[in-house]
Amino acid sequence: MALGFGSAFADVHAAELRVCADPNNLPFSNAKGEGFENKIVTLVAKDMGATVSYTWWAQRRGYVRNTLKAGLCDLWPGVATAVDMLATSRPYYRSGYVFVTRADRHLKIASFDDPQLRGLKIGVQMVGNDAMNTPPAHALARRGIINNVRGYMLYGDYEKPNPPAAIVDAVAKGDIDVAVVWGPLAGYFAAKEPKALTLTPVEPAIDGAQWPMVFDISMGMRRHERPFKDKINEILEQERPQIDAILAAYHVPRMGG
């Protein structure tokens, strides 16, 4: 049985850092270790004198219950800071939603109140349940911008590689005029498109009083494992320059505080 840091942290040189990750979720992670979260957890494990051991699970409903809380792994990178169901580390980056447009269109959209949005074909990421839709979907709906909106499933067709890329592809192909996309996804896939795309951070950072467009991102772990959390925080702080370099290499948009 693998020795996890969360359950046996007295031995800070335990053999494995057990990580929960999605095997088909670039730019964050994949089974080949090509995502930026793969690179960051490898860095963390190195500083712990450990190797990374993955529990692969598609990030769908029940993900935490079936991985971290089931005791199969001890660390979930890339979770929103202060999420209710977990303990979280210090943030290691801050990103947000961006408007994605073709550079040759010169649309210059930065706000949901831009009147152009009422006459454009808009793409938004959808989770599939009205109560769980992304903040941009709610922001558009509360302005009555509905009929010209096309939803793109955040998870997409899991049988294909990189399912979240479809919304960025649609902008590049001209199928839609503008998309509102989570920053790390937008930055990574936009850089791979043959057509130049423009990424503009959504402003303001909170839409009304309810819908944040910018999030601090941390590593999640089970509650009541303070020594483990403290060690993760220590490493994230000392490796900040290297982590920043990894994020930059993946074109992750960084937002201010």
Results as ranks from 00 to 15, higher is better:
residue 21 A to M: 15
residue 183 G to N: 12
residue 237 E to Q: 11
residue 128 G to F: 11
residue 156 G to N: 02
residue 201 P to F: 07
residue 12 V to P: 12
residue 150 R to M: 06
residue 101 T to G: 09
residue 179 A to Y: 12
residue 95 S to H: 11
residue 38 N to Y: 07
residue 63 Y to W: 12
residue 153 M to A: 15
residue 36 F to H: 08
residue 85 M to C: 00
residue 164 P to K: 01
residue 176 I to P: 07
residue 221 M to L: 15
residue 218 S to R: 05
residue 136 P to T: 13
residue 229 K to Y: 01
residue 86 L to R: 02
residue 79 V to A: 11
residue 131 A to V: 10
residue 201 P to N: 09
residue 22 D to T: 15
residue 1 M to I: 10
residue 141 A to C: 02
residue 191 A to Y: 02
residue 3 L to C: 09
residue 67 T to W: 03
residue 135 P to M: 10
residue 197 L to E: 04
residue 41 V to P: 03
residue 109 I to Q: 04
residue 198 T to D: 12
residue 247 L to T: 12
residue 175 D to Q: 14
residue 188 Y to N: 04
residue 156 G to T: 02
residue 157 D to W: 01
residue 220 G to S: 06
residue 137 A to Q: 12
residue 32 K to C: 06
residue 154 L to S: 10
residue 236 L to T: 02
residue 54 Y to W: 09
residue 67 T to V: 08
residue 2 A to Q: 13
residue 155 Y to C: 04
residue 88 T to M: 08
residue 36 F to C: 05
residue 166 A to K: 03
residue 245 A to I: 02
residue 167 I to R: 00
residue 174 G to K: 05
residue 188 Y to P: 03
residue 180 V to T: 13
residue 70 A to N: 10
residue 141 A to K: 15
residue 222 R to D: 07
residue 235 I to R: 01
residue 248 A to L: 06
residue 173 K to R: 15
residue 26 L to R: 15
residue 50 A to Y: 04
residue 163 P to Q: 00
residue 93 Y to S: 05
residue 47 D to S: 11
residue 119 G to Y: 04
residue 13 H to A: 15
residue 126 M to A: 14
residue 84 D to H: 08
residue 247 L to N: 08
residue 37 E to Y: 13
residue 212 P to M: 10
residue 221 M to Y: 06
residue 143 R to F: 06
residue 115 P to W: 01
residue 239 E to D: 10
residue 13 H to G: 14
residue 135 P to R: 07
residue 103 A to S: 14
residue 214 V to E: 08
residue 116 Q to T: 03
residue 69 K to E: 12
residue 121 K to M: 04
residue 153 M to Q: 12
residue 71 G to T: 08
residue 92 Y to A: 01
residue 234 E to M: 01
residue 241 P to L: 07
residue 7 S to L: 04
residue 13 H to W: 07
residue 123 G to Y: 03
residue 163 P to H: 00
residue 36 F to K: 07
residue 66 N to V: 04
residue 150 R to L: 03
residue 226 R to F: 01
residue 94 R to G: 04
residue 98 V to L: 10
residue 224 H to T: 07
residue 104 D to Q: 12
residue 234 E to D: 03
residue 240 R to Y: 06
residue 168 V to L: 02
residue 245 A to W: 00
residue 197 L to V: 04
residue 92 Y to E: 08
residue 140 L to I: 10
residue 215 F to H: 09
residue 18 R to T: 13
residue 213 M to P: 06
residue 6 G to Q: 14
residue 14 A to M: 09
residue 41 V to E: 05
residue 187 G to V: 03
residue 40 I to M: 10
residue 74 D to H: 08
residue 60 R to L: 00
residue 133 N to V: 12
residue 205 A to I: 03
residue 244 D to P: 01
